[in-house]
Design a protein around this nucleic acid. Sequence first.
DNA 1: GGCTGTGAACCACTTCACAGCC
DNA 2: GGCTGTGAAGTGGTTCACAGCC
Lengths: 236, 236
Amino acid sequence: MSNNVPEATVARLPVYQRALIELVREGASSTSSEQIASMARVNASKVRKDLSFLGSFGTRGSGYDTGYLLEQIDRALGLDRSWPVAIVGLGNLGRALANSQGFSSRGFFLCGLFDVDPSILGSRIAGVLVRHVDEIGADPDRAASPAIGVVATPAAYAQEVADRLVAAGVGCLLNFAPRVLSVPPHVLLRYVDLSIELQVMSFYLSHRGAGPGVPAGSAISAAASLPHPVGMNAGA
Amino acid sequence: MSNNVPEATVARLPVYQRALIELVREGASSTSSEQIASMARVNASKVRKDLSFLGSFGTRGSGYDTGYLLEQIDRALGLDRSWPVAIVGLGNLGRALANSQGFSSRGFFLCGLFDVDPSILGSRIAGVLVRHVDEIGADPDRAASPAIGVVATPAAYAQEVADRLVAAGVGCLLNFAPRVLSVPPHVLLRYVDLSIELQVMSFYLSHRGAGPGVPAGSAISAAASLPHPVGMNAGA
DNA sequence: GGCTGTGAACCACTTCACAGCC
DNA sequence: GGCTGTGAAGTGGTTCACAGCC
């Protein structure tokens, strides 16, 4: 198997994994591509083709053994190890991330939290000490150095933070700042961008027969552009 | 133009928009596909092809007028209106979202916040009253009804919340819960899934060298700093 | 008979290369 | 000459349809 797995397939493996965890929990000892597909809301041949990139783990005529398949997917995803993650920027979002299940779940652990705000430096979030951004990569202990860096700073600082994380040796960057970043080619960069998601939705809403959108010039949208918008007035 | 814009193109328009806002702020009155491309980290023909789906806004030989192009992109994205957004689930993540720039920015406004926790019902977050989930869609005022619903609840409640938002008439759902949702075909569903992002990164870390960009086994990728997984076989 | 694994057809998006226009 | 706009070629991913195996 190894390396020729399409990116789109990789992104679906965690979804199959979740379906399998659910099935195992329910006590189902075997399953089918059809069943996984319906849980993952994709079609069955996609499931079969995706799994075939990892190997052939099923039995013709009867399906897949849930536990075994789950193991294989976990192994393919590299979840038989734990990757150290550092979060930079501990505003509302960064703190929410630090406290979220995602990082404490199997496969990952928080190895560092960084910010510049003196009022939180030295405190602990999710049990981890908050250090100054200048200390990124300063720890001589290799095992304390992050494999994954999460950027949750304001947009203006995102590139500099990314540069520091790269210098500290991260292999992957997950960027929550609304900013295009530049990283060397050996670093995998992924974006989670709320404003892009919203704008894509706006596109579809406005190209799908007039929905409940409020014209931009109206009082309501003027209010909406203030820091603390209050919605709901009479509509257009 | 209208509706035949590829989804991949739609997702890049906000990035071009950002680049143009930056250019306008710098006072640049005109620009080129090459310049936009370098700011968006894509290649120039992609920019030209993407823009050509919206119309032909440039001038051969000289480029694009920044202000005019920005206007056209905003119009294509439907940002000449403001869309009402409701957030359901006001834990750490939901609160961070409610307070984030994304929603108060041009094009969107918070029209409702919903939860079930009695200790926050009736309070205000980002200036908006927190109401009980049962009140989703209960408001007879059509303008108060959300066009976009954001699901930020624990996974277990996500499907039920999605159903309620759909019943209340949302056209789009943005799901932050680690759960596959089922919605009717007329509703646009998008996911922001931290654990998928992390697991994709785990895949690339453990298949290092296979990542996009650097061929497997190359000197660069082998030399490219340390892998730091911790522990093996962390039992399922 | 039933379900997996997979070549082949298909489709969406990207990239190329150049015609068209300033 | 320079840069846009766009057919055409190329690429990656999805879906089909069926051979292979239990």
